[in-house]
Each structure stands twice: as structure tokens, then as C-alpha cells.
């Protein structure tokens, strides 16, 4: 895990270094002069040699000091903590939507895989995966939020301020982000169940007289759910991407939005800290799902070791 984090640190530092512009330009603004930009750069320490800046940042981060925003002077930790609850709630909401829709859909798809219901669910899955997140969000916002007016079209209300409004304002964003994942869950659950039903041990169990229902729920479903969990875990990588767009469309002050505006202003410390945070979360989730999966299927574990 550490090499990947280090590699990510190097990559993001390099990418930001080659990117034209810097925070000094943003601070100086259109009424500034080049001389002023240089002055600002010097006062921010941006004129030091790149390796020096890199090591300095790495050292401080390793000790828990994520730096301060070049732009507004707030501590990066404070900025991250301010926005973390929003994105965490969005991610949670998306997962809830995804399981609430995906699990029944997958189950139904498997039980009635031959008939029209199964075909319909397949179609829904394919479309839900193909529609871009931002477009889905806009459609929800305009038609459900503004025209029908039954849910807030955008904005965020903190849970501590008004729990009901908070939940209401998260419905559309969660749907936007969660539908795609729901489709993935449905697809994998259905495939996992159908595959499971073909396994030898199931045939044996049925031959022994166990009811179909019992077989389904005790063995097949459990194994199928494992693969669903693995795949859902992998989706975390794409969650930040979806969050950037969803938070922009629905004006949620979350981490995705922070990433977007920080890139625009080249707020280096914020971008770097967010990147490492995202990578760390992704690695942890991957680790967890790898362990679970390896635990379930010993064959995979040996294959990995090659």
C-alpha cells in the first residue's frame, strides 16, 4: 500500500508541476502584474526547487500536517473535514439506492430470467450503465426537482440544521449516483445466482431432496452476494468522479466539488491532500474486498500469488 501511495504522491506532484498556471496567478488576478505574481510566488514558497517542495510537503504530510490553502488560508484539514460529511452522505445514499434497487432487480432477473421481466431488467441495466451521470442528474433536477417540485432541485442542508430537509435534499443526488451502481449490482447478482444454480453441489443438494428455496437462500445467494460485494467495492474508484459531477449539478459542498474548484485555482495542497485521501480510501476498500473474496474462494488466492 505504501508504494502506491508514494507513487500517487509523485504522480500528482508531477502533474501539478507541469500544469500551466499556479495559485499566485489566481491570487494576483486580472488586475495584477507579472512582477506581483513573482512576489506572491516567492512569499508562498513556490519558487523553491521542485524536489525541495516535494520533500517538504511529503515530510509534513507524513506527520499529519496537510498544509493550508494557498487561496483562502484555511487549513486543508479543516476544509476536508467541512466537506467530508456531505460526500460521505452522498456515497452512503448512493450505496443505499444501489442496493435497494439492485438487489431485488438482480434477484428478480435471476428467478424470471427467461421471461419478459428478465429481459426488461436486462434492458434497464444496460441503459442505466450507459447514461452519463451528469445528464441523469440534470434530468432529475429539471423534471422532478423543478417542474414537479416534489423534491429540492439542488442545495444542501446539514443534518444538524434540519434532518428532514437534509434527507430530502439528498434523494435526487443519491439516485443519480446510485442508479448506475444499482445496474451493476443487479447484473452481477443475477449472473452469480444463475452460475451458482449450475454448480455441482446444488444439483447434488436438490437430488438429495432439499427444497429449491432452501438451496437458493442458503448457499447460492450467499456466494452470489460475495461477488456483488467485491464488484461494488471496486466501484469506489469511480465514485469520486461521479461525485464531482453530481455535486456540481446539485450544488452540494462536498469533496468532489472541492476538488473541482481547487484544480481551477491550482490550490496545490488541497488537491494533493484530496488525491492521497482518495487513493488511500480506494486501497483500503480494495484490500477489504480482496480479503473477503480470497477468503471465500481459495482458488483465487493461489492464482494471485503467481
Amino acid at each position: 500500500m505504501v508504494p502506491v501511495l508514494l507513487g500517487s504522491a509523485i504522480l500528482i506532484f508531477f502533474l501539478l508541476f507541469v500544469l500551466p498556471g499556479d495559485p499566485a496567478v489566481f491570487i494576483a488576478g486580472g488586475r495584477g502584474t507579472e512582477a506581483q505574481v513573482e512576489l506572491i510566488r516567492r512569499s508562498l514558497g513556490l519558487d523553491r526547487p521542485v524536489p525541495v517542495q516535494f520533500v517538504d510537503w511529503l515530510w509534513r504530510t507524513a506527520h499529519g500536517d496537510f498544509g493550508t490553502s494557498y487561496i483562502n488560508g484555511f487549513s486543508v484539514k479543516v476544509l476536508l473535514l467541512q466537506r467530508l460529511p456531505v460526500t460521505a452522505e452522498l456515497a452512503l445514499g448512493a450505496i443505499v439506492v444501489a442496493t435497494a434497487i439492485g438487489l431485488p432487480a438482480g434477484l428478480a432477473g435471476a428467478l424470471w430470467s427467461e421471461g419478459p421481466i428478465g429481459r426488461l431488467i436486462d434492458l434497464f441495466n444496460a441503459v442505466a450503465i450507459a447514461v452519463p451521470v451528469f445528464w441523469l442528474g440534470i434530468l432529475f433536477q429539471i423534471y422532478i426537482g423543478l417542474q414537479l417540485g416534489i423534491l429540492p432541485a439542488l442545495g444542501y442542508v446539514a443534518f444538524t440544521d434540519d434532518p428532514v430537509e437534509n434527507l430530502r435534499s439528498m434523494v435526487l443526488p443519491s439516485l443519480t449516483l446510485g442508479l448506475g451502481i444499482a445496474a451493476v449490482i443487479a447484473r452481477f447478482l443475477k449472473a452469480g445466482i444463475l452460475e451458482g444454480l449450475r454448480q455441482n453441489y446444488v444439483v447434488t443438494a436438490r437430488a438429495k431432496g432439499l427444497s429449491r428455496r432452501r438451496v437458493l437462500f442458503k448457499h447460492v445467494l450467499r456466494n452470489a452476494l460475495m461477488s456483488v460485494v467485491t464488484v461494488t467495492g471496486l466501484q469506489f474508484g469511480g465514485l469520486l468522479g461521479g461525485a464531482v459531477l453530481t455535486e456540481s449539478v446539485f450544488n452540494l459542498p462536498g469533496l468532489g466539488n472541492l476538488m473541482w474548484i481547487s484544480i481551477q485555482r491550482r490550490d496545490y495542497f488541497v488537491i494533493q491532500a484530496l488525491t492521497l485521501l482518495t487513493v488511500a480510501v480506494f486501497l483500503l476498500v480494495n484490500l477489504a474486498t480482496d480479503l473477503t473474496y480470497g477468503f471465500i474462494d481459495p482458488r483465487i488466492r493461489t492464482q494471485e500469488e503467481q
Binding site: 450503465i129 451521470v133 441523469l136 445496474a183 461477488s227 471496486l234 474508484g237 469511480g238 459531477l245 473474496y293
Partner: peptide, 17 residues
């Protein structure tokens, strides 16, 4: 992928699924 990226099939572990 319906989100901006993150191809799913990125690991030998998942390929069989």
C-alpha cells in the same frame, strides 16, 4: 461505467466473475 471513468474489469480476481 456510468461515472467518469474507473473501468471495472481491472483485476485478474474479477475477470472470472
Amino acid at each position: 461505467a456510468s461515472t467518469l471513468g474507473a473501468p471495472l474489469e481491472d483485476d485478474i480476481v474479477v475477470a472470472p466473475i
